[in-house]
Amino acid sequence: MEENWNLARKRNSLYIRAAMIQAIREFFIDKDYLEVETPSRIPGPAPECHIDAIPSDGWYLHTSPELCMKRLLAAGYPRIFQITRCFRGEERGSLHIPEFTLLEWYTSGADYFRMMEECEELIVHVALSLGHEGKIHYRGKEIDIRTPWERISVKDAFMRYSTVTMEKALKDDCFDEIMIREIEPRFADTNRLVFLYDYPVAMGALARVKKTDPEVAERFELYMGGLELANAFSELTDPAEQRARFEEELKNRRASGRVVYPMPEKFLSELINMPESSGIALGVDRLAMIFTDSASIDDVVAFTPEEL
């Protein structure tokens, strides 16, 4: 029998992916982060309206390691990172695969603006390790990775790129549609990396509310070559407020007929000990797409579910 062509043709990408993950580890170990491993199978994910967990023998496969990593933070591990497989149901497309790899890291004493800087340092380090200085070729464009990268608030992005304001989009229930149709394509057009920050509070269930603007939460997304690469918060550390936010998410899940997850009581009871911190989840597969100049997430994983 002939060799499996679909696997053979990914050879170059799989080598780059492995080197990239090696460089990520180096970066964090150099900066005194502790690499941790938390269970993939948990009683329930952090309750969020639009993220569906895959059931596993009465529990669920984790959709991110967020709850367990925050319990570690609360127990006195101030700088931690993890590279782990996560699972999300009903997500499949050229940028989505139900089993994917997340890099998540947390720094106590930092807020989301500090996290933006650390994000810049990480990507520049990884790029250098893979032989890219100052720029990366992706999909026929040259992405300029020199720092600092662009920073724009969600409100300003709506003002600049959309036909409606953020407030109007929220009121008319078309925030997500405007985001994918009018705003994200503009980030694909630019050769700069963009931090989009200060999301409506309802869209950051685990993020701290901004003191100077109670309508928004301290959350950002990083866009690179049009791909949404990472999501970060200044973490919410107030247990009462966190419980209320989860209740709101669960109420919305119930109303739309989705599975209602158990309240993460252990996490909530330990949250009181969690220091002010910032955390971030970065899509490792998508970063590999950029460094291998791939159009689809299928090109940077050895096997897709359809090939099993």
């Binding site: 639009h50 997500e91 985001m179 997304e221 949404e228």
Partner: peptide
């Protein structure tokens, strides 16, 4: 298929 971060 699209899914803006934390969106639907």
């Amino acid at each position: 298929f699209s899914k803006p971060g934390k969106g639907q």
